[in-house]
Design a binder for these strands. Structure first.
Lengths: 236, 236
DNA sequence: CTGCAAAATGAAAAATTCATAAAAGGTTGG
DNA sequence: CCAACCTTTTATGAATTTTTCATTTTGCAG
């Protein structure tokens, strides 16, 4: 059991989660915006902080930076859509985990347990640092998720946020066929009701950027796309 | 697309949501109170149930408990703003999410998508988001359902969507004879009104692709087809 | 062995899918 | 406020896939 600071501007969400977590024996403190969160953190040591991104007065990113400047507390971000998730990586705030809304209280608690324990272990000097270095190499194609860079044969590629996110998601799930629908909800967010054709267009631009490495992105007719680490030609 | 049971005593709210969701292709059934909801659930399998809390005859919590006792369906609760959230110990009843009134149909649908997909993933024993790696091997024939690839002796086969689906369904039900009718409704969908001969043609093309491994697909005269993991010749 | 029904085959017509191009809508930073 | 850029939608055509159907072949019962 540990203490949690839950920061969200929607009272209903705070109450709902607090009720559930308290019932299970966790100690939950609430705050309605980033400003209040920072103040509460100054007064008390929590084991973990849950920060919503969109909040009045002070947003989650700023609050995260502020809290981190003063204390070493694991932080979990709540984000509603892919675009915000996208920013999480861009800011390099060293957040420990994120959960997209709507979340199941059960799942959120499970993740909290993981990051709190990890943090405690790290404090004892046992475990490695918080930010995992996610680098993939496929021949001359190097994809560094944490640095948020993509290189082809040593040349840095300039890509748009959506293209990065799309590529990252394909690469994280390499060798798995992803439907356009799945890609939309994973990269664009659960509440995006756009056309499947949107994916087509972004895939097209992504391929254009990747040059000869575009062949890693395989079209699966009737379904969507898949990232193949190994090129077909190389096999035969 | 999935089927939704929307339970609320206010007809205007039901109609409003139903119209919006149906326009987008969702199948929406309505019920005016908890009692009716429970009855409808007994008659039909819905993919998700939306329950208002305050209703005549039987309130949302009781209905939730009742439905949950009989079936494993994800449930989303509706609560009016200002209504007691401590009542939302509903999480103990295992509700999957809740939304406060007034809600945006768009957001509600987005959340429904999340909990329905989460539930389906859980039913398949997968972690949410993660895709189970379903790989079958029959000698030199390797079928990877998650990558959506088929290999014969290390060589990847190019197949059409229907051929993949047909093969996957036969393999998932290996050793079981499947009638053309069953194959049609499983692979083509329950609402497909085509000829049985359609199956013949696709089986033919599938066999052509499989080469020597075509012998895994056995014709059962007067019935349909069956996938045999072990070849007859190998036994004798 | 024969006849019949079922299944396989081949091929053409119909339907769908996806890449491409281009336009329209939004955002952001100066 | 404008301009540049990013995102999304829409339109189109080529290529592929699916379906249907006529014909041939096969398997089986009598």
């Amino acid at each position: 059991m540990f203490s949690i600071l839950f920061v969200d501007d929607e009272q209903a969400i705070r109450e709902g989660f607090a009720e559930y977590a308290q019932f299970l024996g966790y100690e939950v403190t609430q705050a309605a915006d980033g400003m209040e969160a920072v103040e509460r953190c100054r007064k008390q040591d929590f084991d973990v902080v849950i920060l919503d991104i969109m909040m009045p007065r002070m947003d989650g990113f700023t609050a995260c930076k502020e809290i981190r400047r003063e204390k070493d507390i694991p932080i979990l971000m709540l984000s509603a859509r892919g675009e915000e998730y996208d920013k999480l990586h861009g800011f390099d705030l060293g957040i420990d985990d994120y959960v997209t809304k709507p979340f199941s209280p059960r799942e959120l608690l499970a993740r909290l347990n993981v990051i709190v324990n990890r943090h405690k272990a790290a404090a004892q000097g046992n475990a490695p640092g918080a930010t995992k270095n996610e680098v993939y190499r496929f021949g001359g194609l190097v994809i560094d998720m944490s640095a948020r860079t993509v290189e082809t044969d040593g040349r840095r590629l300039e890509m748009t946020p959506k293209e990065y996110e799309l590529l990252f998601h394909l690469v994280r799930n390499h060798n798995i066929a992803l439907s356009r629908e799945k890609l939309l909800s994973a990269v664009w967010g659960y509440d995006f009701f756009g056309e499947d054709a949107t994916v087509n267009t972004h895939i097209k631009m992504l391929r254009a950027h990747l040059g000869i490495y575009e062949r890693h992105i395989v079209t699966i007719r009737g379904v969507g796309y898949r990232f193949d680490p190994v090129l077909e030609e190389a096999i035969q």
